[in-house]
Design a protein around this nucleic acid. Structure first.
Lengths: 212, 212
DNA sequence: ATAAACATACCGACCAGTTGGTATGTGTCA
DNA sequence: TGACACATACCAACTGGTCGGTATGTTTAT
């Protein structure tokens, strides 16, 4: 769960670059981007400061690389999750939502979103990082669109909303749930919010409010 | 809009303490808590560093005071908004949601939430600030509970959810919408997400999906 | 007179980033 | 095959500047 590697069982030992990205994903989710120093990232990665600036022109550039790695990690994780075997696109979408809801457990830094955390600290001050975070969030959200679209076709659901906006809304609810979790240092309120999201989607697709 | 004073037209000139809190609300929403230096807060407030540490033992304590002021500001603003004149509690709740949706406009730092921003940077490192942010968010969310509860009674709506969880869910959606806005440097995705929230609440209370 | 409300000057710690290197390849041409 | 040219990966020490916070004033209201 803590690793970010996209391919399973990469034989080669991790390079300094990969170790630094892994350290950034871990530490930045705990303390935020600005509060994490380059020295701390090097310590966590077991790498020297010289190696850091050999691979990344600046601390911001490591943030950008970490956001990119985070997107690949997410799309790999959710793209291969069990519910992806469902035939009905609506089952896949609901499976995704249930899966994410059930991930809201354990220590808060282990289920929160790197890109959502970083963008709050960078959106006005570090344009390249803001853009990388947008790409990370959107690049994951948009993977849901084809299933939502197919589910609407199959179940004859229309309405005054786009499939893309619903995909982004799911990310908004999750990002907001992470904030509630951080505020309470626990996941209970976040789970309740995810339950409301699932209830909403089920109502949109005219399913009974709760699972059988 | 940028002022945080709770009472309208306070005659007295603002003290250094009030000016520092106002500066914190403004600058921290733009740059985040960690990226905002004490010197910058003093410059923004037009106050010296000696005055800062006369009123606040530490930078964190200013954050705590700002979170408290933010809660009072929000409850004053929304407690006196036009929709509060509605007789039906459901109209008040929906009025609140529409009001918040329509606030998602203009520059991003002007509609985002101070407490949501600060808690992301402090939840693991500054416990007192985390707690103040929780109090700020919860202290506002819970003002919605009586209307939601009364609306459920009046319209005979039950279901597998509590009024408190729905009040918190509205805050989660808004907080998540703020993150989408920050990621895009614009409010469009945030408004779409707020629209989904309004649609959800209308469905919960068996209203037509869109306003007449 | 006295105490609170400020202001100025300063401190040690820490920060991101630079410097000037070494060790280990890797391609290439005699 | 071997030796030279060059590139990549990494390292330890250092720098200029900024950080949160302090020490010691001065002003102002009562």
């Amino acid at each position: 769960m803590t690793t970010v590697s996209t391919s399973e069982a990469n034989a080669k030992p991790p390079s300094a670059r990969e170790k630094l990205i892994g350290a950034a994903v871990k530490v930045v989710r705990e303390k935020g981007f600005n509060a994490t120093s380059v020295d701390e990232l090097c310590r966590e990665a077991g790498v020297t400061k010289g190696a850091f600036f050999h691979h990344f022109p600046s601390k911001t550039d490591l943030g950008v690389a970490a956001a990119e790695a985070w997107k690949l990690h997410a799309n790999d994780l959710f793209g291969h999750a069990p519910y992806m075997a469902c035939e009905d696109p609506l089952d896949r979408f609901l499976g995704y939502l249930e899966f994410r809801r059930n991930m809201l457990d354990g220590p808060v830094p282990e289920f929160t979103c790197l890109a959502g955390t970083m963008v709050q600290e960078s959106y006005e001050t570090l344009p390249t990082l803001r853009e990388a975070c947008q790409d990370s969030i959107w690049g994951h959200a948009l993977t849901l669109v084809p299933d939502i679209e197919a589910a609407r076709d199959k179940h004859g659901v229309d309405g005054d909303w786009t499939s893309e906006s619903l995909a982004l809304h799911t990310q908004a609810v999750l990002q907001g749930a992470f904030i509630l979790a951080k505020a309470t240092n626990g996941a209970a309120a976040a789970r309740d919010s995810a339950d409301h999201l699932i209830r909403y989607v089920r109502m949109l697709f005219r399913l009974p409010a709760t699972r059988p």
